[in-house]
Protein backbone atom coordinates (compact mmCIF):
# COMPACT_ATOMS: atom_id res chain seq x y z
CA UNK A 1 0.00 0.00 0.00
CA UNK A 2 2.68 2.51 0.97
CA UNK A 3 4.89 1.63 -2.00
CA UNK A 4 1.86 2.03 -4.21
CA UNK A 5 1.15 5.46 -2.72
CA UNK A 6 4.76 6.44 -3.13
CA UNK A 7 4.73 5.39 -6.75
CA UNK A 8 1.59 7.41 -7.37
CA UNK A 9 3.12 10.45 -5.68
CA UNK A 10 6.28 10.26 -7.77
CA UNK A 11 4.12 9.92 -10.86
CA UNK A 12 2.14 13.00 -9.81
CA UNK A 13 5.33 15.02 -9.33
CA UNK A 14 6.42 14.06 -12.83
CA UNK A 15 3.14 15.10 -14.39
CA UNK A 16 3.34 18.37 -12.49
CA UNK A 17 6.89 18.96 -13.76
CA UNK A 18 5.84 18.17 -17.32
CA UNK A 19 3.03 20.69 -17.01
CA UNK A 20 5.38 23.41 -15.77
CA UNK A 21 7.55 22.80 -18.85
CA UNK A 22 4.54 23.02 -21.16
CA UNK A 23 3.17 26.12 -19.53
CA UNK A 24 6.60 27.75 -19.42
CA UNK A 25 7.24 27.09 -23.07
CA UNK A 26 3.71 28.14 -23.97
CA UNK A 27 3.99 31.46 -22.22
CA UNK A 28 7.63 32.39 -22.71
CA UNK A 29 8.56 30.90 -26.03
CA UNK A 30 5.43 30.91 -28.15
CA UNK A 31 4.28 34.22 -26.77
CA UNK A 32 6.77 37.03 -26.26
CA UNK A 33 6.53 38.43 -22.73
CA UNK A 34 8.35 41.60 -23.75
CA UNK A 35 5.51 42.55 -26.08
CA UNK A 36 3.14 42.97 -23.20
CA UNK A 37 5.51 44.27 -20.60
CA UNK A 38 6.95 47.17 -22.52
CA UNK A 39 5.17 49.95 -24.26
CA UNK A 40 5.53 49.82 -28.06
CA UNK A 41 7.17 53.26 -28.08
CA UNK A 42 10.12 52.08 -25.99
CA UNK A 43 13.50 52.48 -27.69
CA UNK A 44 16.13 49.81 -28.24
CA UNK A 45 18.11 50.55 -25.08
CA UNK A 46 15.01 50.49 -22.94
CA UNK A 47 14.05 47.17 -24.42
CA UNK A 48 17.46 45.67 -23.76
CA UNK A 49 17.35 46.84 -20.17
CA UNK A 50 13.97 45.21 -19.63
CA UNK A 51 15.16 42.00 -21.23
CA UNK A 52 18.12 41.89 -18.90
CA UNK A 53 15.99 42.78 -15.89
CA UNK A 54 13.57 39.93 -16.63
CA UNK A 55 16.46 37.56 -17.31
CA UNK A 56 15.26 36.95 -20.85
CA UNK A 57 18.84 37.12 -22.20
CA UNK A 58 19.76 34.05 -20.15
CA UNK A 59 19.65 30.55 -21.70
CA UNK A 60 16.22 28.98 -21.71
CA UNK A 61 16.98 26.29 -19.15
CA UNK A 62 18.17 28.93 -16.71
CA UNK A 63 15.00 30.92 -17.19
CA UNK A 64 12.98 27.77 -16.60
CA UNK A 65 14.94 27.00 -13.44
CA UNK A 66 14.17 30.46 -12.12
CA UNK A 67 10.50 30.03 -12.97
CA UNK A 68 10.41 26.63 -11.25
CA UNK A 69 12.11 27.95 -8.10
CA UNK A 70 9.62 30.78 -7.98
CA UNK A 71 6.70 28.39 -8.48
CA UNK A 72 7.94 26.20 -5.62
CA UNK A 73 7.93 29.23 -3.33
CA UNK A 74 4.42 30.13 -4.45
CA UNK A 75 5.67 33.03 -6.54
CA UNK A 76 4.11 32.99 -9.99
CA UNK A 77 4.49 36.66 -10.69
CA UNK A 78 2.24 39.66 -10.22
CA UNK A 79 -0.90 40.40 -12.14
CA UNK A 80 -0.40 43.32 -14.57
CA UNK A 81 -4.01 44.34 -14.15
CA UNK A 82 -4.56 44.07 -10.40
CA UNK A 83 -0.91 44.53 -9.42
CA UNK A 84 -1.21 41.75 -6.87
CA UNK A 85 0.45 38.35 -6.62
CA UNK A 86 -1.27 36.11 -9.19
CA UNK A 87 -1.54 33.21 -6.81
CA UNK A 88 -3.30 35.36 -4.23
CA UNK A 89 -5.84 36.45 -6.83
CA UNK A 90 -6.56 32.85 -7.76
CA UNK A 91 -6.85 31.84 -4.11
CA UNK A 92 -9.36 34.62 -3.50
CA UNK A 93 -11.56 33.46 -6.33
CA UNK A 94 -11.25 29.74 -5.70
CA UNK A 95 -13.94 29.32 -3.00
CA UNK A 96 -16.64 30.63 -5.35
CA UNK A 97 -15.67 28.10 -8.00
CA UNK A 98 -15.29 25.20 -5.59
CA UNK A 99 -18.65 25.97 -4.06
CA UNK A 100 -20.28 25.94 -7.47
CA UNK A 101 -18.53 22.77 -8.63
CA UNK A 102 -19.21 20.79 -5.45
CA UNK A 103 -22.86 21.80 -5.47
CA UNK A 104 -23.03 20.55 -9.05
CA UNK A 105 -21.41 17.24 -7.99
CA UNK A 106 -23.92 16.86 -5.20
CA UNK A 107 -26.79 17.58 -7.59
CA UNK A 108 -25.57 15.09 -10.16
CA UNK A 109 -25.44 12.32 -7.55
CA UNK A 110 -28.67 13.17 -5.77
CA UNK A 111 -30.63 13.52 -9.02
CA UNK A 112 -28.70 11.20 -11.33
CA UNK A 113 -28.59 8.02 -9.22
CA UNK A 114 -32.32 7.74 -8.39
CA UNK A 115 -33.33 8.52 -11.98
CA UNK A 116 -30.75 6.05 -13.30
CA UNK A 117 -31.95 3.35 -10.92
CA UNK A 118 -35.51 3.89 -12.06
CA UNK A 119 -34.59 3.84 -15.74
CA UNK A 120 -32.51 0.70 -15.17
CA UNK A 121 -35.17 -1.18 -13.24
CA UNK A 122 -37.98 -0.24 -15.62
CA UNK A 123 -36.20 0.19 -18.95
CA UNK A 124 -39.27 -0.23 -21.13
CA UNK A 125 -41.62 1.96 -19.11
CA UNK A 126 -42.62 5.33 -20.55
CA UNK A 127 -40.95 7.18 -17.68
CA UNK A 128 -37.77 5.13 -18.06
CA UNK A 129 -37.55 5.83 -21.76
CA UNK A 130 -38.33 9.53 -21.25
CA UNK A 131 -35.54 9.81 -18.68
CA UNK A 132 -33.10 8.30 -21.16
CA UNK A 133 -34.30 10.50 -24.03
CA UNK A 134 -33.97 13.68 -22.00
CA UNK A 135 -30.56 12.62 -20.71
CA UNK A 136 -29.22 12.71 -24.28
CA UNK A 137 -30.03 16.42 -24.28
CA UNK A 138 -28.01 16.83 -21.09
CA UNK A 139 -24.99 15.54 -22.97
CA UNK A 140 -25.29 17.26 -26.29
CA UNK A 141 -26.74 20.69 -25.53
CA UNK A 142 -24.01 23.32 -25.40
CA UNK A 143 -23.84 24.33 -21.78
CA UNK A 144 -23.55 28.06 -22.39
CA UNK A 145 -26.70 27.99 -24.49
CA UNK A 146 -28.61 26.17 -21.76
CA UNK A 147 -27.37 28.82 -19.35
CA UNK A 148 -28.71 31.59 -21.59
CA UNK A 149 -32.06 29.85 -21.86
CA UNK A 150 -32.23 29.46 -18.08
CA UNK A 151 -31.62 33.18 -17.69
CA UNK A 152 -34.15 34.00 -20.39
CA UNK A 153 -36.88 31.88 -18.83
CA UNK A 154 -36.32 32.10 -15.08
CA UNK A 155 -34.76 35.53 -14.74
CA UNK A 156 -36.12 37.58 -17.65
CA UNK A 157 -39.54 36.08 -18.38
CA UNK A 158 -40.60 34.71 -15.00
CA UNK A 159 -38.39 36.82 -12.77
CA UNK A 160 -38.06 34.00 -10.23
CA UNK A 161 -34.32 33.84 -9.85
CA UNK A 162 -31.47 36.33 -9.93
CA UNK A 163 -29.36 35.91 -13.04
CA UNK A 164 -25.91 37.18 -12.09
CA UNK A 165 -23.44 37.35 -9.23
CA UNK A 166 -23.02 35.46 -5.99
CA UNK A 167 -25.59 37.35 -3.95
CA UNK A 168 -25.16 37.61 -0.22
CA UNK A 169 -22.32 35.65 1.32
CA UNK A 170 -21.51 34.63 4.86
CA UNK A 171 -18.17 33.84 6.41
CA UNK A 172 -17.06 30.37 7.39
CA UNK A 173 -13.44 29.46 8.17
CA UNK A 174 -12.47 32.94 7.08
CA UNK A 175 -13.88 32.49 3.60
CA UNK A 176 -17.02 33.97 2.08
CA UNK A 177 -19.63 31.40 0.95
CA UNK A 178 -22.91 31.86 -0.90
CA UNK A 179 -24.53 28.65 0.22
CA UNK A 180 -24.86 29.94 3.77
CA UNK A 181 -27.44 32.59 2.97
CA UNK A 182 -30.87 32.25 1.35
CA UNK A 183 -30.06 35.00 -1.10
CA UNK A 184 -26.78 33.34 -1.98
CA UNK A 185 -28.51 30.01 -2.50
CA UNK A 186 -31.03 31.66 -4.83
CA UNK A 187 -28.12 33.03 -6.83
CA UNK A 188 -26.56 29.60 -6.95
CA UNK A 189 -29.58 27.65 -8.23
CA UNK A 190 -29.22 28.45 -11.92
CA UNK A 191 -25.43 28.32 -12.28
CA UNK A 192 -25.18 25.08 -10.30
CA UNK A 193 -27.99 23.48 -12.29
CA UNK A 194 -26.38 24.60 -15.51
CA UNK A 195 -23.02 23.21 -14.51
CA UNK A 196 -24.53 19.96 -13.22
CA UNK A 197 -26.68 19.10 -16.26
CA UNK A 198 -24.04 17.17 -18.18
CA UNK A 199 -22.99 15.30 -15.07
CA UNK A 200 -26.53 14.44 -14.07
CA UNK A 201 -26.91 12.85 -17.48
CA UNK A 202 -23.58 11.06 -17.08
CA UNK A 203 -24.34 9.67 -13.61
CA UNK A 204 -27.84 8.71 -14.71
CA UNK A 205 -26.55 6.78 -17.70
CA UNK A 206 -23.82 5.09 -15.70
CA UNK A 207 -26.30 4.05 -13.04
CA UNK A 208 -28.74 2.71 -15.58
CA UNK A 209 -26.05 0.82 -17.45
CA UNK A 210 -24.78 -0.62 -14.16
CA UNK A 211 -28.25 -1.78 -13.17
CA UNK A 212 -28.86 -3.33 -16.58
CA UNK A 213 -25.51 -5.07 -16.39
CA UNK A 214 -25.83 -6.33 -12.82
CA UNK A 215 -29.48 -7.41 -12.74
CA UNK A 216 -29.01 -10.54 -14.87
CA UNK A 217 -26.00 -11.62 -12.82
CA UNK A 218 -26.13 -14.76 -10.74
CA UNK A 219 -25.45 -12.97 -7.49
CA UNK A 220 -28.69 -11.01 -7.91
CA UNK A 221 -30.65 -14.16 -8.60
CA UNK A 222 -29.00 -15.87 -5.65
CA UNK A 223 -29.86 -12.92 -3.42
CA UNK A 224 -33.47 -13.19 -4.56
CA UNK A 225 -33.38 -16.95 -4.00
CA UNK A 226 -32.40 -16.24 -0.39
CA UNK A 227 -35.76 -14.55 0.05
CA UNK A 228 -34.47 -11.10 0.99
CA UNK A 229 -36.62 -8.11 0.10
CA UNK A 230 -36.43 -6.67 -3.43
CA UNK A 231 -35.46 -3.26 -2.04
CA UNK A 232 -32.50 -4.82 -0.23
CA UNK A 233 -31.47 -6.58 -3.43
CA UNK A 234 -31.46 -3.28 -5.31
CA UNK A 235 -30.18 -0.87 -2.68
CA UNK A 236 -27.60 -3.09 -1.01
CA UNK A 237 -26.54 -5.75 -3.49
CA UNK A 238 -26.81 -3.97 -6.83
CA UNK A 239 -26.12 -0.41 -5.70
CA UNK A 240 -22.95 -1.32 -3.84
CA UNK A 241 -21.63 -2.90 -7.04
CA UNK A 242 -22.44 0.02 -9.30
CA UNK A 243 -21.20 2.61 -6.82
CA UNK A 244 -17.61 1.69 -7.67
CA UNK A 245 -17.63 2.99 -11.25
CA UNK A 246 -19.91 5.88 -10.29
CA UNK A 247 -17.63 7.12 -7.51
CA UNK A 248 -14.65 6.84 -9.81
CA UNK A 249 -16.26 8.77 -12.62
CA UNK A 250 -17.88 11.39 -10.41
CA UNK A 251 -14.58 11.91 -8.63
CA UNK A 252 -12.70 12.36 -11.86
CA UNK A 253 -15.40 14.68 -13.15
CA UNK A 254 -14.91 17.14 -10.28
CA UNK A 255 -11.83 18.39 -12.09
CA UNK A 256 -13.85 18.67 -15.30
CA UNK A 257 -16.51 20.67 -13.49
CA UNK A 258 -13.98 23.08 -12.07
CA UNK A 259 -12.57 23.57 -15.57
CA UNK A 260 -16.00 23.85 -17.13
CA UNK A 261 -17.07 26.38 -14.53
CA UNK A 262 -15.22 28.79 -16.84
CA UNK A 263 -18.26 28.74 -19.12
CA UNK A 264 -20.92 28.83 -16.43
CA UNK A 265 -19.17 31.59 -14.52
CA UNK A 266 -18.97 33.68 -17.68
CA UNK A 267 -22.66 33.21 -18.44
CA UNK A 268 -23.86 34.00 -14.91
CA UNK A 269 -21.12 36.51 -14.05
CA UNK A 270 -20.15 34.30 -11.11
CA UNK A 271 -16.97 35.80 -9.65
CA UNK A 272 -14.92 32.63 -9.50
CA UNK A 273 -11.51 31.79 -10.88
CA UNK A 274 -13.04 30.71 -14.21
CA UNK A 275 -14.35 34.20 -14.82
CA UNK A 276 -10.96 35.54 -13.74
CA UNK A 277 -9.06 33.41 -16.25
CA UNK A 278 -11.29 34.44 -19.16
CA UNK A 279 -10.86 38.10 -18.27
CA UNK A 280 -7.10 37.55 -17.89
CA UNK A 281 -6.80 35.84 -21.26
CA UNK A 282 -8.69 38.69 -22.88
CA UNK A 283 -6.26 41.27 -21.51
CA UNK A 284 -3.24 38.91 -21.72
CA UNK A 285 -2.53 39.04 -17.99
CA UNK A 286 0.00 36.22 -18.32
CA UNK A 287 1.03 35.72 -14.69
CA UNK A 288 -2.60 35.09 -13.78
CA UNK A 289 -2.99 32.69 -16.71
CA UNK A 290 0.08 30.77 -15.60
CA UNK A 291 -1.04 30.72 -11.98
CA UNK A 292 -4.49 29.45 -12.97
CA UNK A 293 -3.10 26.70 -15.16
CA UNK A 294 -0.63 25.51 -12.51
CA UNK A 295 -3.34 25.62 -9.87
CA UNK A 296 -5.81 23.62 -11.90
CA UNK A 297 -3.24 21.01 -12.87
CA UNK A 298 -2.39 20.62 -9.20
CA UNK A 299 -6.09 20.28 -8.38
CA UNK A 300 -6.43 17.61 -11.04
CA UNK A 301 -3.53 15.60 -9.75
CA UNK A 302 -4.79 15.79 -6.16
CA UNK A 303 -8.30 14.78 -7.22
CA UNK A 304 -6.99 11.83 -9.23
CA UNK A 305 -5.00 10.65 -6.23
CA UNK A 306 -7.99 10.90 -3.91
CA UNK A 307 -10.22 9.05 -6.36
CA UNK A 308 -7.68 6.25 -6.65
CA UNK A 309 -7.58 5.97 -2.88
CA UNK A 310 -11.38 5.96 -2.64
CA UNK A 311 -11.53 3.28 -5.27
CA UNK A 312 -9.38 0.98 -3.21
CA UNK A 313 -11.53 1.62 -0.17
CA UNK A 314 -14.72 0.79 -2.07
CA UNK A 315 -13.66 -2.26 -3.99
CA UNK A 316 -12.45 -5.08 -1.74
CA UNK A 317 -10.84 -6.84 -4.70
CA UNK A 318 -8.54 -3.93 -5.48
CA UNK A 319 -7.83 -3.41 -1.79
CA UNK A 320 -6.42 -6.88 -1.47
CA UNK A 321 -4.23 -6.64 -4.55
CA UNK A 322 -2.68 -3.47 -3.25
CA UNK A 323 -1.95 -4.90 0.14
CA UNK A 324 0.11 -7.63 -1.33
Amino acid sequence: MTTWMLRRLIQAVFVMLAMTVIVFIGVNVIGDPIEILISPEADQAERARAVAALGLDKPLWEQYWKFLLGALQGDLGRSFVFNEPALKLIAQRMPATLELALTAVLMSVVIGIPLGLYAGLKPSSLAGRTIMGVSILGFSLPSFWVGLMLIMVFAVQLGWLPSTGRGQTAELFGVQWSFLTANGLAHMVMPATNLALGNIALVLRLTRAGVRENLPMDYVKFARAKGISPSRVVFVHVLKNIMIPIVTVVGLEIGGLIAFAVVTESVFAWPGMGKLIIDSINVLDRPVIVAYLMMIVLLFIVINLIVDLLYTVLDPRVRLENKE
Binding site: V23, I296, F300
Partner: peptide, 20 residues
Protein backbone atom coordinates in the same frame (compact mmCIF):
# COMPACT_ATOMS: atom_id res chain seq x y z
CA UNK B 1 -4.15 9.02 -21.49
CA UNK B 2 -2.56 12.22 -20.25
CA UNK B 3 -4.40 14.23 -22.87
CA UNK B 4 -7.74 12.65 -22.09
CA UNK B 5 -7.38 13.09 -18.37
CA UNK B 6 -7.68 16.85 -18.82
CA UNK B 7 -11.03 18.22 -19.96
CA UNK B 8 -11.20 19.47 -23.53
CA UNK B 9 -12.23 22.98 -22.52
CA UNK B 10 -9.14 23.34 -20.33
CA UNK B 11 -6.73 22.17 -23.01
CA UNK B 12 -8.34 24.46 -25.57
CA UNK B 13 -8.22 27.39 -23.15
CA UNK B 14 -4.55 26.76 -22.52
CA UNK B 15 -3.70 26.68 -26.21
CA UNK B 16 -5.70 29.79 -27.02
CA UNK B 17 -4.16 31.56 -24.03
CA UNK B 18 -0.71 30.90 -25.52
CA UNK B 19 -1.53 31.52 -29.17
CA UNK B 20 -4.30 34.10 -29.09
Amino acid sequence: DLQLSFPAILVALMILAFLG
